[in-house]
Amino acid sequence: MESSFNLVAYILLLAAVTLSLISLWRPNKYTGTLALAALVLSFTSLTLALVLRSITGGRLPLATLYEFALLFAWGILLFYFISRKMIKSDLLMVLVALLEVIILSYSNTLSSGTRPLMPALQSIWLQFHVLTAIIAYGAFGLSFCLGLIYLLKEKGYDSIGESILPPLAKIDNLLHWSVAVGFPFMTLVLITGAVWAEEVWGRWWGWDPKETWALITWLIYAAYLHARKTYGWRGKRAAIMAIVGFLAVLFTLFGVSLLLPGAHSYV
């Protein structure tokens, strides 16, 4: 059951990519609306998959990399829907849908078994840790896509209509908003992680690669917020920093698990 909802979510995302691309190429009312509908249904399907997984596993799906990949995709979509209150851009929709497809494709290569929780993972702090990470990384995922469309617009694809690319200042403001929302939650990710590590291993910080990369992510976004506030670093440089910040997120989640050994190797 769960896997069929996953498959449906995946197919709908592919449909959203296709439809939103068509609507970029030949702007019209229908394909854009259809693409959005596909995204909403995909989100629903993903939610159902996660709910089913919780029921069959007898626990919240917060423990394996596969589970987190699904939650990550879920969080980014959530923030995309919120962003539509402020910006409607077809190009943004293409990028978000593409990012979702990439994350879900990657999740398919991970083992999806529902193993019971090993002792180290049986902690309320782990649950807070992952829940705050969904919000932080969802917001950062949105800011990444906004950073990309900012750079594209800057590069001179300026002649296209506003439905595709909103004005630069609008993108920049929404980008700042999403980083400013993500940052306190990223702080919570670090704090809950430290408290959990202290409870489980007796060390609140150990420079384990995953911890280190979460801290690096935090430092990059702190730099973004300060540069923007006190230097007025808006626009291009800020967009680049937001993109680099999200690359650090991706590396924390997937690169570290693959390349760098550490205590977190099970997540």
Binding site: T212, W213, L215, I216, L219, I220, A222, A223, H226
Partner: peptide, 9 residues
């Protein structure tokens, strides 16, 4: 902030 990030990585 940025230097510490680079060195930590």
């Amino acid at each position: 902030l940025l230097l510490l990030g680079v060195l930590a990585s």
